[in-house]
Amino acid sequence: MAALVERLRELAREVKDPSGASLWLLSLPAVQQVAHEAVLSARDVEIAAVQAHILPARYGRSLGTVGWEGQLALLRATVGIVGAGGLGGWIIEGLARMGVGRLIVIDGDVVEESNLNRQALATQRNLGQPKAHAARERVAEVNSAVEVIAHCLRVDEAQMLQLLHDADVLVVDALDALPTRLALQRVARALGRPMVHGAIAGFVGQVMTILPDDPGLTGIYGEGQVPEHGIETQWGNPAATPMMVASWQVQEVVKLLTGRGEPLRRRMLFMDSEGGSIDVLQV
C-alpha cells in the first residue's frame, strides 16, 4: 500500500485550488497506468489515491460538494438501480460521473424508437440493444473506474432480493409500474437498505427517500390493491421530466452515501413543471 501511494505521488501533479491551497491531482492516464502496473482495478487505484488525498482529476468539481471522505464513500459504495429507462438512464449517468464505485443495473428491456425522446441510454445506433448492456457501455465511456453489473432481466420480488443483496447501500426505484415499486420497497426493507423512489408523468414528478422503518409508498398507496399505472398512461413522458426527477434521485443517493445534507426522508418532493411549483409533503 505504501508503495502504491508512493507511485501515485510520483505521477500526481500539484495545482493550486481557488483559495491558494495545494491540491494533488491524478490524471486519467496516470490512474490507468498505475492500475496496469499494480494489477488493480481503476476503482481501487482511485480509492487509494483519494485516501492519500490525491484527487483523480475527474472529481475536481465534486470535491467542494462532497469532500474527500464523501468521494471515498462514493467510490466504495455499491448502488442498485432497478430500471434503466427514463429515470434509470439519467440516474446511472449521474452516479457514474460522481464515481459511485459499483452499479448493479437491472432492466429486462431493449432500446426502442419510442425511447429516443427521453432516455439517456437510447440512441439511434443502439436500437435493439438490452438497456442493461447499454448502461454498461455508457458508464465505461464516462467513468471507467465504475464497475457495472448488468442484469438483463424482468425481475420479480424474489429475484430483486437476490440480485440486490450485494447493493451494500441503496436501491433506486426507476421502475414503471406501481406494484413492482411496492415490491422493491419490500425488498429494500428486507435488505435493510434505503430506497430512493422517483416517479414521473407528463410535466410532473415526485421523489422521496424511504428508509427501512418508514411507511414510504405503502403509507401513500396503502397495503391493498394498487393500480398498475398512473396518469403517465395518458400524459406520456417528455424529455425533461425524467431528467428533473432523476437529478433529485442522484442527489438523494449522494447525500445518503456521503452523509451530507438532508435526505427527503418522510418528505415527498412533488414537482409540477407545467404550473411551475414544487411542494414538499409529509408522508
Binding site: A174, D176, L178, V204, G230, I231, E232
Partner: peptide, 11 residues
C-alpha cells in the same frame, strides 16, 4: 386537503 393522482411512470 391536497389531492394527487397516482404517478407511476419511470420509463
Amino acid at each position: 386537503l391536497s389531492l394527487f393522482p397516482p404517478i407511476a411512470g419511470g420509463c
